[in-house]
Nucleic acid binder design. Structure first.
Length: 691
DNA sequence: GGTAACTGGGTTTTT
DNA sequence: CCCAGTTACC
């Protein structure tokens, strides 16, 4: 449960850190609500659509509404709160519980991400849905491995044009599922460079679906598909929908067609449905979401109440002036009005080049720190995870601690995936992707041999003394001992009592990690921690699903509960920063091709989404916002070429936008002196872990 | 025939 | 830095 919530040090943007977006002091649920918020809280049970501009207290409003429902006697377990991140779900459930009257046991509230809730409900109805009880959940990495395997099997002769990469194939498949379009349509619109492969790709997608079913594997999309299918079923569906009197959905502008179907099935006539969103903050088009779902909802539900929230409790007016300037036209007309007075205009810092920008960011972080802003009240937000590389270097050089959110995650570290794969095999020995990973960890076993061995495992006779003998025989002689040991250790783990299984799996994996990775000892420390966390739960399968669906969000997050006095700057992608806020925000790399991303420049829709992303970024700031433009960027044509060219400033920095900014020319470079002693940023330790 | 070690070309965003 | 294609070795 709520690893993030239970660690005070890990709530980088949570209001709790500095009493920001209204903390609850035990007063009534209506305390301090403005008129519009109150209207939303009190709206009757008909469908309710809340259009909430950035920082207008939508979380506060949603939780107050839940508290009021509880007070009116709705049983907590009949209220379902759907969000897109676990952090959002945890925050809201906790706040609602705090708001509700003491006699209500608000811990019984149901809630979580769409995917996590889907998993719970599907697992409860697995048999009726025709699923094996021990089905596995494939994360996108596993899905890509599976695609790779299938692509290898199909081995299409036309090597003339490069086939899409496995991860791209997964993206294509996912887009088809989430937007309910055919492969041909998706390729034509979103992946035009893959069009020459339309037929093979379609064939691969079919094979992918068949293979998953055959081996009891569900990918993330399947969780939603099965949930929708269950809801559509006459018997299971009516039961599932009748479990809830009220369904509240956060960030509704980010739902895709599949999620729309699910929500509509849960509330067929719209009664009991509350959705909150802001179409100007829709930034997940690449995942199949469409902000029109928000605007269409009110139109399709007769009698829907629409409430618009425009009073910003977050940002100071000068920041809102920028936000209102940036907010794209064509979205719901929301003009943010500050509820906090004072503040300076956002600053545009023009830097010499990217290293100069990194120095400027570090300098301004320190300057704010000197003025009394703890590091954890500051965030650096970037368009893509690698845009912070130079800044991370600079922060490390000065020993300024930071944590990075978004980008690569802990569970994507190879050794963690190895361990998780082994755990998966306990419940689902048919999980070939998990086997594939484990087999390849052995010396002398590469993709080809591992694949042959999968076949042998498939035929294995579970009653035999050593059912894996056939597979072992396919291994090179020198690895047979180690391989047999792995099989035996995993079999022993399966026989072990549940509480001892995580440790038993670690015993099976330990020697493999030891020989495979040069930095084995630090990786084993991670795994011991992971195993300890697994042991603390009573349902290993549920724990596994949770780790897969809600991975620790930052590097270092699993490094144990941080100390209360630990202070660090947050570096995050704008996507991961959604819904969060910090008193001081730094926004580097505002250069065309970077932000907005050059991948998006080709289409009007892509550019629109980049602009919404920019809107999200600017509205994360409460008190201070700094934008950075490096005036020269390295040529990207050749990595070794260190020539620079004048960088085109971001097209978002129009004359009107510049009009609400203060402009500061490059501050002169200073030697980078370490100012913080102690541990450097966690990221440094993790740098070499990925493969 | 297959694995491991090397090299060169291309890099968004996430449940 | 990740992945694919190449080469050297078993």
């Amino acid at each position: 449960m709520g690893g993030i919530l239970s660690d005070p040090g890990l709530g980088p943007g949570t209001p709790a850190g500095y009493g920001g977006e209204r903390m609850f002091d035990g007063g009534g649920w209506d305390e301090g609500l403005d008129d519009a918020q109150l209207e939303a809280v009190l709206a009757d049970d008909g469908p309710l659509v809340v259009v909430a501009g950035a920082g207008t207290g939508k979380t506060r409003t949603l939780t107050a509404r839940v508290a009021r429902l509880l007070e009116r006697g709705t049983p907590p377990e009949r209220i379902l709160l759907l969000t897109f991140t676990r952090r959002a779900a945890d925050d809201m459930l906790t706040q609602a519980a705090a708001l509700a009257a003491r006699r209500v046991d608000a811990r019984r509230l149901r809630g979580g991400t769409f995917h996590a809730v889907a998993h719970q409900l599907i697992a409860g109805a697995a048999e009726a849905l025709g699923l094996p009880t021990g089905f596995s959940v494939l994360d996108p990495g596993d899905a890509a491995d599976l695609m790779d395997l299938l692509r290898d099997e199909q081995r299409l002769a036309d090597a003339e044009v490069r086939t899409p990469r496995p991860a791209t194939l997964v993206d294509i498949y996912s887009r088809c599922v989430n937007t309910r379009r055919s492969v041909a349509e998706v390729l034509a619109v979103d992946f035009p460079w893959c069009q020459p492969h339309t037929d093979p790709v379609a064939q691969l997608c079919r094979a992918y679906v068949a293979r998953k079913r055959q081996h009891g594997q569900l990918d993330f999309d399947d969780l939603l598909l099965y949930w929708r299918a269950a809801l559509a079923d006459e018997h299971i569906g009516s039961h599932m929908a009748s479990m809830f009197d009220h369904v509240l959905v956060d960030e509704y502008q980010d739902v895709n067609a599949l999620q729309v179907d699910i929500v509509r099935s849960l509330c067929p006539d719209g009664r009991g449905l509350t959705v909150v969103g802001d179409d100007a903050q829709a930034v997940y088009g690449f995942r199949g979401s469409d902000p029109r779902h928000l605007t269409d909802l009110a139109a399709s539900l007769p009698g829907a109440t629409v409430v618009t929230l425009e009073g910003s409790f977050r940002s100071l007016q000068p920041i809102l002036d920028l936000a209102n300037e940036v907010r794209p036209g064509g979205c719901a007309p929301v003009v943010l009005q500050g509820r906090r007075s004072g503040g300076r205009r956002p600053v545009l810092v023009r830097c010499h080049d990217a290293p100069g920008e990194a120095r400027a960011v570090a300098q301004r972080i320190l300057a704010a720190h000197v003025q009394g802003r703890p590091l954890r009240h500051q965030a650096v937000l970037v368009r893509a995870a690698h845009h912070s590389d130079l800044i991370e270097l600079e922060l490390s050089a000065r020993r300024i601690p930071y944590r990075k959110y978004g980008g690569l995650r802990f569970v994507e570290a190879a050794h963690v995936k190895d361990y998780v794969a082994a755990v998966r095999l306990l419940d689902n020995p048919a999980d070939d992707i998990a086997w594939f990973r484990i087999l390849r960890l052995h010396e002398g076993i590469g993709p080809a041999r591992a694949k042959a061995m999968l076949g042998a495992l498939h035929l294995m006779d579970a009653a035999a003394a050593q059912p894996w003998a056939g597979a072992v025989a396919l291994a090179p002689a020198k690895t047979r001992v180690a391989l047999t040991a792995t099989f035996e250790a995993l079999a022993a783990a399966r026989r072990d009592r549940p509480g001892a299984r995580p440790a038993a799996v670690l015993r099976a994996v330990r020697p493999l990690v030891q020989t495979r990775y040069t930095d084995a000892s630090s990786r084993l420390v991670d795994l011991e921690r992971l195993a300890a966390a697994a042991e603390a739960t009573d349902d290993l399968a549920a724990w596994l699903a949770e780790v897969t669906l809600d991975p620790p969000a930052s590097t270092g997050e699993l490094a144990g509960p941080p100390h209360l006095d630990e202070d660090y700057v947050v570096i995050s992608t704008v996507h991961s920063a959604k819904g969060l806020e910090w008193p001081v925000v730094h926004l580097p790399h505002l250069v065309d091709g970077t932000f907005p991303s050059d991948m998006a420049l080709g289409s009007a829709a892509g550019l629109d989404e980049e602009r919404r992303l920019f809107y999200v970024a600017t509205t994360r700031a409460r008190d201070q916002l700094s934008l950075y433009v490096p005036l020269r960027m390295p040529h990207h044509r050749r990595a070794r070429d260190d020539r620079h060219s004048l960088a085109p400033a971001s097209r978002f920095l129009t004359a009107d936008v510049l009009g609400v900014l203060d402009i500061e020319e490059l501050t002169p470079a200073r030697p980078a002196a370490p100012v913080f002693s102690g541990r450097a940023a966690v990221r440094v330790d993790l740098d070499r872990l990925w493969h």
